[in-house]
Design a binder for these strands. Structure first.
Lengths: 215, 215
DNA sequence: GTCTATATTCTGATAGAC
DNA sequence: GTCTATCAGAATATAGAC
């Protein structure tokens, strides 16, 4: 077997990745965690430095400003959202129902690992037009063409595309947005919440199918 | 006709209410607007004073601290949420379907006047147990008893009460939470959004009824 | 690249005159 | 009740030594 790097360097590269993230990576990771959990204004640069275990001055050395660092996290999170929908809704080889199943399953899986993300993204979506592509992508998708065809053929009842989008997204993502209302001393546990979402992964597509028969 | 106050005072009281809010009222109103729009940390006491057109020192004169003022707004907003659900779900004289219709209609009407409220409340619901009563009220309601009875009789399919709550609330409130994603230069206008919600007011109860047939 | 020390601005709050 | 002036601490950012 031929290697690009000599053994010593390969081991170094490998172990660095596994056990020793660079300062830059440590900062990014801490920023991602804290910003996503509590938002831009609640988190101070000192919090990020402390969480990362690095000197405060290094944040500005690597990222120049708090806002810069935040933008990186914001874009990262937003991309995770867009990536799932983009990959699914323009596939010409899957049916309407397969797409809905995939959308629901993929979002629930991704958000179970990043439960604070929806509230974070929604809270920080202001005027930035770049961040409002969601609706546009949906409206112009192959999925929507399929739906319109199914409406014409009478397979499903007429529905406003925006309503359809809101229903899929609302049923899937809203529980994560309201998570803090459910999870508390008198409410359900985190494990119970995850179990609940696992069940919803199966049910939401069925519910949507039933809704699409309503005139 | 007998009056509690002489005419001069009644006129004064009346005109004050209509055209000349007190300083205290001006501050509260500005705080409500700004906090609800952008949250606690993003808003500075100076912003509130400026918006209200009063001197900065008066904020502390009337409310002692920023946090105090915020608490007033938070409680006010949270009460608006709780009030609607409380009034509806324990009425023993209305059916399941009437309750769902009323919940949806009342929330959409209230939120159309206060579209930023849901994101505000959800963003600021941390550990405070007082603010997590929502689920509890729902679970212990007469409405839920009616649902359980209907499940036993086979009128509706078995469903987890938390799912039912999430579905009603998600379909109704989520559009307001994601409002900024929909309303922008390339998206829909505020008027179109309100029209959309007016339509959903009719459709959501029908959709939920259809979902409740799904096994 | 990393650290200490510090500049600079922001922000909540108050003292004291009117 | 309202205003001006100002304090004290917080928070972002940078200068300069190592």
């Amino acid at each position: 077997m031929i290697h690009l790097y000599p053994t010593s360097i390969r081991i170094m590269l490998k172990s660095r990745k596994q056990t020793d993230p660079t300062t830059e990576e440590k900062i990014i990771e801490s920023a991602r965690k804290l910003f996503t959990e509590k938002g831009y204004n609640a988190i101070k640069t000192r919090d990020i430095a402390k969480e990362a275990g690095v000197n405060l001055a290094l944040l500005n050395y690597y990222f120049r400003s708090k806002e810069n660092l935040f933008e990186i996290i914001m874009k990262e999170n937003f991309k995770k959202f867009i990536k799932i929908i983009s990959e699914i809704i323009n596939d010409e080889h899957t049916s309407i129902w397969q797409k809905i199943e995939m959308l629901v399953a993929n979002y629930i899986e991704m958000l179970s690992l990043n439960p604070d993300m929806p509230l974070f993204v929604l809270s920080h979506t202001n005027q930035d037009p770049q961040r409002a592509k969601f609706r546009e992508k949906f409206i112009e998708s192959y999925f929507l063409k399929q739906v319109q065809k199914a409406i014409k053929s009478g397979e499903i009842a007429p529905i406003n595309p925006v309503d359809l989008m809101l229903n899929i997204v609302g049923l899937t993502i809203f529980p994560f947005v309201g998570r803090q209302m459910l999870i508390n001393n008198k409410g359900i546990t985190k494990d119970q919440f995850n179990e609940l979402m696992k069940e919803r992964k199966k049910m939401i597509p069925k519910w949507i199918k039933a809704m699409l028969k309503v005139k």
